[in-house]
Design a protein around this nucleic acid. Structure first.
Length: 273
DNA sequence: ACCGCACCCTGAGCGC
DNA sequence: TGCGCTCAGGGTGCGG
């Protein structure tokens, strides 16, 4: 299976560590990574004997190899001192909360997160986890019928429903906006006012944008990098997210932005009703 | 039960 | 140059 973790270096205790870093180090060192799985936006590492490690990237989390080179791994000042086209090997900084050394002397694995909205937690054998237990069906298998049922009686915006991880796990702000655009539904519409047919269109839209984002390696808008440091490509395919005042790709009318559920939401007032 | 909001944290970018 | 402001792929916990 996977490799044994020889050594773990952490930053000091903070909001980031659901399990305190000293306890985390003791728990992890010497253990083998048997498997990795995704649960919504969480990454769950199986460490054998029933123990697990829970990881979440939050907004600015970066999980990558020591062989990765990307300017996204550097602060603005570090970038400014780079020679043009220079590729500097990454050196752990104050935002690098976890540094794994694995057996066999191969590349190390880092988890860096500037804002510390990411999370790491040790889950003991037999322990349940409230964060995991709350998750609804995975977005890739979420049906229009299930969305329609969840919407019954709900006065909140359909956008809020899509961001609720207990309704569907794995939908984030970009993909909620993009799916609603494909479905022709405004993000602010009350959930209970969305028809069954529109729910089908929304989940079909979700599947489409999520699959396409996976194909293109994700959205590298600000911080996201693949484990090898590569940028994703989906930011170039956005139809509405982050395109305020730019022309709709279908009808050319300007994309609108408004705040829903404390998150910025983008839509075309002409294509979405 | 439901809903809106404050809050956790750091940095980039902008107008003045 | 510096200051103050807004904005940012997320999620929790509180009070009304």
């Amino acid at each position: 299976m996977g490799k044994r973790i020889e050594r773990v270096v952490t930053t000091k205790p903070s909001y980031f560590f659901l399990t305190p870093p000293d306890r985390l180090r003791r728990a992890l060192e010497g253990r083998r990574v048997e498997a990795l799985a995704r649960a919504g936006k969480y990454l769950v590492a199986d460490l054998g004997r029933g123990d697990r490690l829970l990881l979440h990237l939050g907004m600015t989390g970066q999980l990558f190899s020591s062989e990765a080179t990307s300017v996204r791994l550097l602060s603005a000042t570090a970038r400014a001192s780079l020679e043009p086209n220079a590729q500097r090997a990454f050196e752990p900084d104050e935002h690098t909360h976890l540094a794994f050394t694995l057996e066999g002397g191969g590349p190390r694995v880092f988890f860096r997160d500037v804002r510390k909205f990411g999370k790491v937690q040790w889950i003991e054998k037999g322990e349940s986890n409230a964060r995991l237990d709350r998750l609804g069906p995975d977005a890739l298998h979420f049906t229009g019928e299930a969305l329609f049922r969840a919407n019954r009686g709900r006065r909140i915006a359909i956008k809020s429903m899509l961001l609720d991880q207990s309704v569907a796990a794995g939908v984030g702000n970009i993909y909620a906006d993009e799916a609603l655009f494909l479905a022709g539904v405004r993000p602010g519409r009350a959930a209970k006012r969305v028809t069954r047919r529109e729910c089908e269109a929304i989940t079909a839209g979700l599947h489409k944008v999520l699959r396409r984002s996976i194909e293109t390696g994700g959205s590298s808008i600000s911080d996201y990098v693949a484990p090898d440091g590569a940028d994703g490509g989906y930011q170039d395919e956005r139809r509405v997210y982050g395109r305020k005042d730019e022309p709709c790709r279908v009808c050319s009318s300007p994309i609108k932005r408004r705040v829903i559920a404390q998150r910025s939401s983008h839509y075309c007032a002409r294509c979405q009703r």
